[in-house]
Simulated scan of single mutants.
Amino acid sequence: MAAGRRCPRTRAARRSDAGQADSFTWPDARTPNPRRIIVDMIEECARHADLLREAVDGLVGEDAPA
């Protein structure tokens, strides 16, 4: 296939999926909350950034530099 060309099935699948949100449920019938997922990802990134900061400046926790 030439570069930039796609299979007709791929294009058809993309058109049929357009505008439809993916659905997912856990076995106990709960569905994920996208807002909660994003908040969890932000919190996890903040934890990693804090670990990097602690490694750089040597201070642990939220204490201000002396």
Rank of each mutant, 00 (worst) to 15 (best):
R35F: 11
M41Y: 05
I42T: 10
R11E: 07
C7L: 08
R30Y: 05
T10L: 08
G19S: 06
N33M: 02
D17L: 07
P8Q: 00
A12F: 02
M1P: 08
A55H: 05
P32A: 02
R6M: 09
A13G: 11
V39Q: 14
T31V: 13
A2D: 05
G61S: 08
A3Q: 06
M1E: 09
A46L: 06
P8M: 06
L59R: 15
V39I: 15
R53D: 05
E54H: 04
S16K: 08
A2H: 03
T31G: 09
R47Y: 00
E62K: 14
P27Y: 01
A46S: 07
P65C: 04
I37Y: 03
F24N: 13
D28C: 05
I37L: 14
I42K: 13
V39H: 05
V39F: 03
R35S: 12
E43C: 03
A13I: 04
C7D: 14
A55V: 03
A49C: 00
A49W: 02
I42Y: 04
N33S: 10
A18T: 09
D63Y: 01
R47I: 10
R6G: 10
T31N: 06
D28Y: 02
C45H: 05
A3K: 12
E62Y: 11
P8L: 02
A46P: 00
C45G: 13
I38S: 11
I38E: 13
E43P: 00
E54Q: 14
P32G: 09
A3D: 10
D40F: 03
I37H: 05
A46G: 10
P32E: 02
A18S: 12
I42A: 12
L52D: 08
A29D: 08
